[in-house]
Nucleic acid binder design. Sequence first.
RNA 1: GGGCGAUUGGCUCAGUGGUAGAGCACUUCCUUCACACGGAAGGGGUCACAAGUUCGAAUCUUGUAUCGCCCACCA
Length: 932
Amino acid sequence: MTTPTLDLPNAFQPETVEAEMYRFWESHALFRPESQPAVPAEKQTQAGSNRFSLVIPPPNVTGTLHMGHALDYTIQDILTRWHRMRGDKTLWMPGCDHAGIATQSVVERALWDGRLEGQPAKTSRHDLGKEAFLNLVWQWADARKVDIINQFKRLGISPDWDRLRFTLDDGLSQAVREAFVTLYERGLIYQGQRIVNWCPQLRSAISDVETIYQEEDSFLWHIAYPLTEAVEGFPSALTVATTRPETMFGDVAVAVHPEDGRYQALIGKTVRLPLTDRFIPIIADESVEMDFGTGCLKITPAHDANDFEVGQRHGLQPVWCLDEDARLVKDDAVVPRSLQGVNRFEARQQVEALLEEAGLLVEKKPHTHRVGHCQRTGDVIEPFLSTQWFVNTQPLAQEALAALERGEIRFIPERWTKEYLRWMTHIQDWCISRQLWWGHAIPAWTCADCGHGPIVSRENPHTCPVCGSTHLQQDPDVLDTWFSSGLWPFSTMGWPNTQAPDYQTFYEHAHESADSPQSTYGTDVLVTGFDIIFFWVARMTMFGHAFTGRSPFHTVFIHGLIRDEKGQKMSKSKGNVMDPVQSIEKYGCDGFRFALTSLIAYGGQDIKISDDKLEQGKLFANKLWNASRFVLMNLYQADPSALKKLSPEAIIPETLSLMDRWILSRYHQTVAEANRLLEGFRFGELAQTLMDFTWNDFCDWYVEYAKKQLREPEMAFNTRCVLLTVLDGLLRLLHPIMPYITEALWQKLPNRSELSISISTYPVANPSYVQPELSQQVEFAIQTIRAIRNIRQEYTVAHATPVPVVVECPDSNEQAALREAEAIIQHFVRLSSLQVVAHLEVPIAQAGINVVGQSRVFIPLEGLIDVTAERQRLEKKQLELKKEQQKLYQMMDNHEFLQQAPAAIVEKNKARLTEVNHQLKGLEAQLESLSA
RNA sequence: GGGCGAUUGGCUCAGUGGUAGAGCACUUCCUUCACACGGAAGGGGUCACAAGUUCGAAUCUUGUAUCGCCCACCA
């Protein structure tokens, strides 16, 4: 540590500290759990467990940083930094998602528009071929990943970047394969012909949750299907009502309700399909609503989910009249020649015209109904009969639901539990195959010679087990991108290798609290928006139980969506998108983060963000800066020898003024309050509480009063100590929300009694391990130094560089400490033959956050309380309790109640009575002490 | 058709049984040595409506109204 200097400008300039502090943290490898020093027992919190882990919701590689990310990651960073400061071994796992559909379409478009280097415009992926195209996508994705991470770093967040994962990494791909094969072996993955949501633009199936339904105005066409024989008492044609006349060529029957009196005599007869010379039967099926339309339903099994089921019940072969591009098929047996190849929207008009011409269009009525759209492309979804891979989700959902019932997972706010429960209870099978190129290949093969298949295997098969042929063809499809996301909490930790260090340390034993020695969950918290509960959270819980036998996290914190100041969703088309990077540049990262945090309401309401709010965050950062500047300036006015003596422990309790006692008392209250709010995920209130204390109590009252006290020679010392104490704690309290400014200011505080040296060895060994030789060298060096120098504190070398070492610093003498540090570094260099970069500052994060009870000063409250008001308050409380006491006594005397009420209720009342009596005694004592 | 959420000062919103809160805006005053990106003082709300529970309700219960969101195979 160098002597702090006070070149503080009179307004906070975020840009001067942000980049520097981020480098400082990274050079200390502060985000790596391995470099975290063990926190001394007396600094550990009672509530704190010794592990904390969470995984980042991986952003799409296609994405750019938006406000939603900023909010989501700020919350996670607050939690991460808070736990780290409490001494928990903390891992925040970062990563990116390959985002199958999104990425492929973006690159495809860029390729077509000629925006990819070395590629001419108007090139399609088919022109390039699969391999060349995928190479392009990889190049593009790798470049994007770097961009995204650099953007995220602007948020000041602290995940362990060395562990960065990608859903298409080898390890994660292996996890995907293991998961797929395991589910297949358990009979929970199957291939089948089903109606899927088909996006013609993508030429791929998508899942139910990727289909967005919107109400649209359309028509109900009433079409006459002529009967092939005259039936007495009936007109010569049956009128069906449909919203999709263009699919009529796929009709295989007309259905009526079996109990519909109007059509009884017609069941089993035949009608001619208009515009064709095909004949289809009239069948009876209970799924037909008699009241809707004409009560006659055309059955199109290949293009409607309900019709498909009807067709199955009646053994009807489906007829496809639309192809993969949603154009009428070129098949004379199905579609009249003039309509072949016409797309579905034009076909609708042409069919209508033809029907009208033929006199078969009975009526065209306006009608609103829900139309599915592709979440990604916006194209109208075509229900389409096709062979795809599915996950049988019900058994998986049941396990997850059982865990929910056992209380192994909770949602905050709680109301989302119901949403999750409802969805999981009515869950449909999940279509996981996509007709794309970019993604995880499906590990299923078919024999090209004998047609045997599918062969599903962990290892690539070479011969057909039936005919011995070596001509095996892998399924051309890839998996839904959410399949790999669903494994994220444990695939990132090394699963399926359950012996992987991260899996052991941060997944399987994530929470070793006293009350749950047998942990039943993996990581601790998941933070996300409600919009992906079904896409992601539900899949993670199902997969978590299926593969690891535990909930992937015990708490799901759901936050609201970010909206603009008018409450509208931010979207490019509306032009109301706010760029977080721009906001950070304008208001400073700390101000920005503080503003965001202060807007998070506990109920998970949507968040309306505006420049006005961000401006407030900036003002607060500036206020904090200036308050600190005042304190520091006054501390450094003390002569150098006195400066060294300033510390919380040096406070002389006997001579504290009332104002000193008051601010210390308020400070301790605030610390307790802040920890309580953090435990309860009450971020908005946390920000409010801290701002209130900083601004109203500390700045407006104490600092103003301190000016006077500093002029009194006998009060100056205590005042300086109190200023230092409160500022020190305040900075630590605010650090999780405002990391940069607090770190920068904290570094300027005088008199850190111990000095931490973080020794980074370069080149840093890649990701999560150290080369054995390197590790041995470090170990050797440390051991040796340890033998001759006074090094305190645990250090870890097994899994990481750098190595944190703490040096005892005699007499708080900085110069001595500095010399000691230099000596150690020199030893280290000599002994390990490694290049060493040493940093001599201690990061605020390692200072701990729980400062309650640290002060030796007892802060009595007398003299500051308005005695009369307090007495009134206590008396009121006493009255209330006495009333309750009376009620309870009456209950206890009531024989009917005692006999008839459930035992639990009686017990509860008894317990309450004991507590009330206890409280009353306490109140009496308080009242007495007030009188005295 | 079901379910969920919201309704608090001019604006944006906190607050879940104990005397209505914050920021912005507004009024008046103050450039005094941390900060004018500041300070001091002040005005402004029968907490959507109705009924109920309670000694006491913004807060709990029921109903109503308005707005928003989610889910559902009436073609």
